[in-house]
Nucleic acid binder design. Structure first.
Lengths: 346, 346
DNA sequence: CTTGGTTACTAAATCGCTCTAGTTGCGGGA
DNA sequence: TCCCGCAACTAGAGCGATTTAGTAACCAAG
């Protein structure tokens, strides 16, 4: 048999569709006895709402969109991202809101989807990730007037709500720690320069290095892949005057860097200290275990979901949530720098 | 201004809604000149289809569902899963089909969602993962008559289509290789016993061990987590007569096992060889690099997407796709077993 | 006994699009 | 000249729900 509709229920109970609708949605307009009868019949007939029909009437889609402009193959590699997705999912599941996930080629395509899904009422809002410097997506989302939460900040996300952790403070804490250990030549294997957070981290390093009068503080950019992370490490360790500490913008790159150090016979942490900006199983499992900035990425995703749901519920109010600044978990990959032959002259 | 509808376009062009619908969907019923004019106005007004309205008429939802019954926190840890998701996404993106992702508590909830989404025309089909022994979800999907593709096989997925790799053959190739190296005591750190693939692997090991008359071939079950993988390894390596080779059902567990070996002072591969059933960055990056069964998980996900789309396009025809059997990539974690004091007596 | 207010309900419009049945106009064959 | 057939297009029903305006029944107060 065909899937039952409220009309079927109405016929069977002997009331109008309207009454059935009221009863099923728990709103006034039907007597208790009738309501109970309707609910029972609905259950008997195994009725379920047809979300498309509801959406047509302007109701919630019970889904939020996440559109990512990255090569899809990159998604699987990043524990951070995977964890974030899990947390996001968990937060949304709590209210049975689904996640519409789509990977696209570039930001253009991403904005196109924003328009599409918004006008199709396919989602109730969007989560925007990978905030870039002068991000064109902000304007699109603002113009569409659709609920949206930006992952990243502070600032630079227009009138949209946001959830963020302080990348600047986090980087400062790393630099301070390394400086306290005695490091004076620090390298930073960063991600894509177009990302806001890459920029903030790079700047934080530069600023603090200047203030502490460090000898060297260089940031090199990569595409976040393990291969570029390895290549960057190789280049850094091949310098005549090599850095005594390297900070990696992701755990995958840190692990790759650790591998390169091993391959080049550079001892960790004796000859070079390694710090990862993200924490995950990878850093814990590595040998030596890698000192990393820990944050509960899963919880972060969950928070993101909560803010998203709040914004959907009340689009007027803008939210700007700063989450706990990640804290350094010291493991085996960091130590005071060994005296370096070149230093004896200085 | 409000989002334009086909009625707006019809008014502006001076034709009926029907004509506009025909024109926009590229079907006969309008002249070339009119069609062109309609398309142009639609573009000018920035019109976009309202998928809910279409779905109401019985059209495609342009989305497929993936419901996973696992603790959400587990999702992020598995590179295999993340990679699969990426590939799936990539395959679907090719036809602009989105992925509706939902994490639920248990199989009960999962089946409930199948019913929900099916009757709400929210998705065009489902991808089912984590095939279990006597899986109740199969019957539900069959009864609903919704297009579905099961990840796992061969067999035991009723009338549903499936995509799978031969876990049995894969395990046999590992055992053969280890036996050829001279190993006669092999342990297997497996996943959840409820999973079909865990069962198949365990059986394959047992069968081949019997045929090769190996001294020992034991499988221990875990929940796939790194901590249980580590615990299992610790137990195995603490035995008086320890195995000379350990096969792990996932790369995360293999890496954890490698860590435990290091911590216990058991040399890899000299004293124990390690093989991972899944390959990823993790195994390549580890030191020593881990010998693993490589398969292109991303491509696997993509294939899954293709089959899904094919099944949606023609639900009558059932598909059963066997993908390439994963092949062993030998790295540094496997070697012939060292002579073990206990063996001298035998 | 009427009036006013409340409750319980019905009828029908509405959302945006698709699709079928019907209408119009035009050219060509008998 | 008349009618047929076809292409081009229109009108409107229908998809499954929500929601508004309206109605009937009933009770209480005057």
């Amino acid at each position: 048999m065909r899937r039952p509709t409220i009309t079927d229920i109405a016929e069977r109970v002997g009331v109008s569709k309207g009454a059935v609708s009221f009863a099923l949605n728990g709103r006034p307009g039907v007597g208790e006895a009738t309501r109970a009868r309707i609910l029972q019949v609905a259950k008997e007939m195994n009725w379920r709402p047809h979300s498309a029909a509801r959406a047509l009437g302007g109701a919630r889609a019970e889904a939020v969109g996440l559109v990512i402009a990255r090569p899809a193959s990159a998604l699987g590699v990043e524990p951070f991202f995977a964890q974030l997705l899990s947390g996001l999912q968990a937060g949304l599941s709590a209210q049975s809101v689904a996640l519409q996930l789509l990977i696209v080629e570039d930001a253009e395509a991403e904005m196109e989807i924003y328009r599409d899904w918004t006008s199709a009422h396919r989602v109730d809002g969007f989560v925007m990730v990978d905030l870039m410097v002068r991000d064109p997506r902000i304007a699109v989302l603002e113009e569409l007037g659709v609920p949206a939460v930006v992952l990243g900040g502070p600032g630079k996300h227009g009138t949209l709500s946001s959830v963020w952790a302080d990348d600047r403070e986090a980087m400062l804490s790393i630099v301070d720690y390394l400086a306290a250990l005695g490091h004076r030549r620090i390298a930073h294997v960063a991600g894509l320069p177009a990302f806001r957070h890459t920029q903030r981290r790079t700047r934080a390093l530069r600023d603090r290095a200047a203030r502490l009068a460090l000898e060297e503080a260089v940031s090199v950019h990569t595409d976040f892949s393990d291969s570029e992370g390895a290549a960057a490490t190789r280049a850094l360790l091949s310098r005549p005057h090599r850095p005594t500490a390297i900070v990696y913008d992701s755990d995958v790159m840190a692990l790759a860097g650790l591998g390169v150090a091993g391959e080049m016979g550079v001892k960790v942490p004796d000859e070079v200290s390694i710090v990862a900006f993200d924490d995950s199983v990878l850093t814990r499992i590595a040998h030596p275990a890698i000192t990393a900035l820990s944050r509960d990425t899963f919880a972060f995703g969950k928070r993101l979901a909560e803010v998203m749901l709040a914004v959907v519920a009340d689009p007027e109010q803008r939210r700007d949530v700063k989450t706990e600044t990640p804290r350094l978990t010291v493991r085996e990959s960091t130590a005071p720098p060994a005296a370096w032959p070149g230093d004896q002259n200085g």
